[in-house]
């Protein structure tokens, strides 16, 4: 009986699996996507403008070329963008977003002989001050993990949203949108204590495995936290995008719904990210 049971359970476990299927969804009309986040660091800002494509097609999304792209501030500054070889629009001059300033995006392009207009608007938020950034070590399943934690004051009267990136020795470890960290001060008291990332302490694993592993932290590495407030709309856009990219849980996912957007006559998001930076050095021996 035991053998039969194991056989049957194995049958279920093995047979409960996946199968690639062909779908023929009801179509929607083609559109244009826009994605751009104006940072608080003076640099040539980037805006991605692409045509949408059929979901289950092998064709890549094509960039919208020859568009007139400008960002106008509430102070009257106008920044022009030009199409570059990477397929993105880059500002001709370097600039940074500022607190309280509204940025209006305007895109004009020609599609099948017709001129079309896309617009969006965003406002810079107040920078956020991080008090401390520190690392603690925690053994988990035989491996030592480095838990990167930040502490900051929290304005408990206002619900706010934050976006986070982490760099090790100036190399950002979560560059893709689906990897960006999101936080909200919902439910948090006067002090915000947030775990930023869990890294593997390199000295706790065999040397021969190090080359094949990601998310490692070595003694003496500089960890840089890049964090800042973002608008609720941008938070929703990134949060919903992450859910779509990472695959939603069958238990918690709701009916399929389009990702929030602030783009008029298009999809995507145009926002600001009022970044501040905080650094710490990982000291393997002294970290507990």
């Amino acid at each position: 009986m035991k053998r039969l049971s194991i056989l049957a359970i194995c049958c279920i476990i093995v047979s409960a699996c996946t199968k690639r299927i062909e779908l023929d969804p009801v179509g929607v009309s083609s559109s244009v996507s826009v994605f751009g986040i104006i940072s608080y660091e003076v640099e040539n800002q980037k805006i991605e403008i692409y045509h949408t494509a059929k979901y289950f097609s092998n064709n890549d999304n094509l960039p919208v070329e020859n568009a007139d792209v400008t960002v106008t501030t509430s102070e009257g500054d106008v920044y022009e963008f030009e199409f570059d070889e990477s397929g993105n629009y880059i500002s001709k001059t370097a600039f940074a977003a500022k607190e309280g300033i509204t940025y209006s995006l305007s895109i004009d392009y020609t599609d099948n002989g017709k001129t079309k207009h896309i617009s969006a608007e965003t406002t810079g938020l107040e920078p956020y001050i991080v008090d401390t950034l520190y690392v603690t070590k925690q053994p988990i399943m035989g491996i030592e993990m480095a838990i990167v934690t930040m502490e900051a004051q929290n304005n408990t009267n206002v619900k706010e949203q934050f976006m986070v990136q982490l760099a090790i020795n100036d190399s950002i470890i979560n560059p893709q949108m689906s990897q960006w960290g999101l936080m909200s001060n919902n439910y948090i008291g006067e002090r915000m204590v947030a775990g930023i990332a869990t890294l593997i302490v390199a000295s706790s694993i065999p040397e021969e495995l190090i080359e094949d592993m990601e998310g490692l932290v070595f003694d003496g590495d500089t960890l840089t936290l890049i964090v800042g407030r973002i608008e609720k709309g941008l938070y929703d856009f990134i949060s919903q995008s992450k859910s779509e990219i990472q695959g939603e849980s069958p238990f918690f996912s709701g009916p399929a719904s389009n990702i929030a957007t602030n783009i008029v006559n298009g999809v995507g998001y145009f926002g600001t990210w009022c970044t501040t930076r905080k650094e710490c050095i990982f000291n393997d021996k002294e970290t507990n």
């Binding site: 979901y55 990219i245 399929a256």
Partner: peptide, 21 residues
């Protein structure tokens, strides 16, 4: 159900656009 019928691009990642529910 609602299938994604189109997609748009952010960085190297694709995001779905759904038709009516």
């Amino acid at each position: 159900t609602t299938y994604p019928s189109a997609r748009f691009k952010v960085g190297d990642e694709y995001l779905p656009i759904y038709s009516n529910r």
